[in-house]
Simulated scan of single mutants.
Amino acid sequence: MSARIHPTAIVDPKAELDSSVEVGPYSIVGPDVRIGAGTVVGPHVVIEGHTTIGRDNKFFQFCSIGAAPQDKKWNGEPTRLEIGNGNTVREFVTFNLGTAQDEGVTRLGDDNWISAYVHLAHDCQVGSHTIFSNNAQLAGHVHVGDHAILSGYAGVHQFCKIGAHAFIGMYTSLTQDVPPFVLVSGNPAGARGVNIEGLKRRGFSRPRIDGIRAAYKHIYRENLTLEEAKAALARDGETMPEAAADIGAMRDFLGAATRGIVR
């Protein structure tokens, strides 16, 4: 192993580190850990468990990565944590392994910005290009889509799903699913509109945004049942071709929601 390891760090000989990996003072890397090229592990970081980390990640001081799940049902099974590429993981972040009661793996995708004190519990599935502000907390089995944003102190109940491009406001207490593109806030959470500013920043065209806003109105403003809203979304998908994929994503999400949606 020729990675750049500080003399005070403890790296198990069985760990697999690319030669370009840096490990800072007093950090600990366990035997079942694999770390890809260009990743920097800051001081006082603990990485353990069956954890695979991709390239060009940055872990700031005092992170706990790959610890046992906080679940009494976990009985030492060889579950995993998988982290993609280009993630920034700030101070005091905690990521736990998966459990045998789910897929057995907790996942974080690529290019995510994970701020201080964020917690990803067992079996969470987080996509790519997300932003988690300080103290955002996910309970077990939560799914978060690409480009979603969780503001500071947002708390998410276990098994909830958050769709792509959704925005969760500060101090929000979330106990139900959030469809794609929707902005929610409050305690309990309520839908406040479409995350239009986020969509503009990501280059969504005017027709796409108009289609998403029309879909939002069917779900939240027209007193329709979910089945009626899904039928209306199906019609819009045929008449608004530029937004058809986005409207389809919202309709599919409604069909897959397991805890009911925030309304």
Rank of each mutant, 00 (worst) to 15 (best):
P7C: 11
G198N: 12
L138R: 08
W74Q: 07
V40W: 12
H165Q: 07
S173V: 05
N96K: 08
Y117H: 15
G66T: 05
T39R: 09
T106Y: 07
M240I: 02
P188M: 12
V41I: 15
V46I: 14
G127Q: 00
L138Y: 14
F92W: 06
I83V: 00
D32C: 06
K58P: 01
L226W: 03
K72T: 10
R202S: 04
I10M: 15
G155F: 10
E227A: 02
E227T: 01
G260H: 07
V194Q: 13
G163V: 09
T8Y: 14
V144M: 05
A249Y: 04
A15G: 04
V182Q: 03
A229R: 00
I149W: 14
I114G: 06
S173C: 11
P241I: 00
R201W: 14
P69W: 08
S2E: 13
S115D: 10
I5F: 06
G76A: 03
A232T: 04
N57Y: 14
S115K: 01
A148N: 09
V118G: 05
G127F: 00
G140C: 01
A243S: 04
G198W: 13
C160V: 09
E16R: 04
V89G: 01
G24Q: 10
K161G: 02
A229I: 02
K14Q: 12
V178R: 00
N223V: 01
T8C: 06
P241S: 07
I168M: 14
D210S: 12
E16M: 01
D123K: 02
A191Y: 10
R235D: 14
G255Y: 12
A166I: 00
F59T: 05
K72P: 08
H141V: 04
V142M: 03
H50T: 08
N195E: 09
G255D: 13
S151L: 06
H6C: 07
V194I: 13
G152E: 09
E242M: 01
R202W: 08
E77H: 15
N75S: 12
P69M: 09
P31A: 06
F60M: 12
L150G: 12
R4W: 04
V45S: 13
G54P: 11
N187L: 10
M170Y: 12
S64N: 12
E103V: 00
T94Q: 10
R201C: 11
A121F: 02
E238A: 02
D111Q: 11
G30M: 11
I5D: 02
Q137T: 04
D71G: 00
G98L: 02
A154D: 10
A116D: 13
I247Y: 01
K58G: 08
T8H: 15
A234S: 11
N134W: 03
V93F: 05
Q70P: 07
D12I: 00
A121K: 02
T258K: 15
R4G: 03
I261Y: 11
A136V: 01
G98F: 03
A100K: 04
F95E: 06
L233W: 02
G66V: 05
T239V: 08
M1E: 13
V194W: 15
G98A: 03
D177Y: 08
W113G: 01
S185Y: 03
T94N: 10
W74S: 04
A191P: 07
